[in-house]
Design a protein around this nucleic acid. Structure first.
Lengths: 158, 158
DNA sequence: TTGCATACTGTATAATTATGCACGATATGC
DNA sequence: GCATATCGTGCATAATTATACAGTATGCAA
């Protein structure tokens, strides 16, 4: 039955890395669900699962992870979402603000800030886990730092 | 240059639906970045982008969305993450608890609860946006409801 | 029962993505 | 300078995923 099979899929991917739908089909077969890759593909789509790159080196393995539906629908603005989910730390000095993110997150944060086009900001530079935000004036520092903190605060727990 | 091109990719996918890496390559070309699908594939991997199914109907379009790196690394337990992100509402009665989720999220929540194997819980049923949790005893109701609320509370803002 | 609609699936194949290999550019050490 | 190493890339193709189509099963109304 479709529902139980899909639940089995969720259980499987929560347990171990799965690298392809063929592999998933094999694992399901071992549990008594005999289905083809085609069906697995449909299940994966219905469950909203996505294949995420595990590490960026060549030859890196992949596994399935699910993207919770809420991620794509809940947050109102991209900037808000990105800051809330990716910014770990905020600190400012003179006319500069440094934002820390998990590894690999900096470019997304920088991109989102650019897109927001805040007038106080004259530019951003995103590295791997650090974003440098340059302000037009030293006077803007406390206001903008506070704004970042506020965006961040709404999801501080995770 | 690789970095600016990758930032352009982030900007593109934030702006409009992109259905394939070929399409992304075309859009980049329009901005002066001439690259092949192969390079886009590598960029997508490095940025941690994933292709998410947009709707489940046949012939449904897809687009790129990024999975924030934090999603795969931050939360400690699957149950915690799933409850925090997916459970919208909790209500209990007698020996039953009903959890509401965004559409499509119920099965994941049910699966995660099953995997956690809480002793008070004798079973779960996941529909589309509703999970029914059955408890062994009426006495367990307030305790378990509170536990769900606590898990949820840590991310209530989103 | 018959006819029709819906749901689920497999087969075959199209579409898409990932990657081995080679090459050119740039940097590093001798 | 020259050898060597690293990085980014394209090309060709392998690997993986999505889907058009057809078949089976089920439910329901006439």
């Amino acid at each position: 039955m479709k529902t139980t099979r899909q639940r089995a899929i969720l259980s499987l991917i929560a347990t171990r890395p799965v690298h392809s739908q063929e592999e998933l089909a094999s694992l399901l077969e071992a549990q008594g669900y005999e289905v083809t890759q085609a069906t697995v593909s449909r299940d994966v789509k219905e469950l909203g699962l996505v294949k995420v790159p595990l590490k960026s080196g060549t030859g890196a393995a992949q596994q399935f992870k699910y993207v919770e539906p809420s991620i794509t629908t809940n947050f109102s603005s991209r900037l808000h979402r990105v800051i809330a989910e990716l910014v770990v730390h905020v600190v400012g000095a003179v006319n500069q603000i440094v934002l820390r993110t998990p590894p690999g997150g900096a470019m997304m944060v920088a991109s989102a800030i650019d897109a927001a086009e805040w007038p106080e900001i004259i530019g951003t530079i995103g590295g791997d886990d650090t974003v440098l935000v340059l302000l037009a004036s030293t006077d803007d520092l406390p206001v903008v730092v506070q704004r970042f903190e506020d965006l961040r605060a709404e999801a501080q727990s995770a």
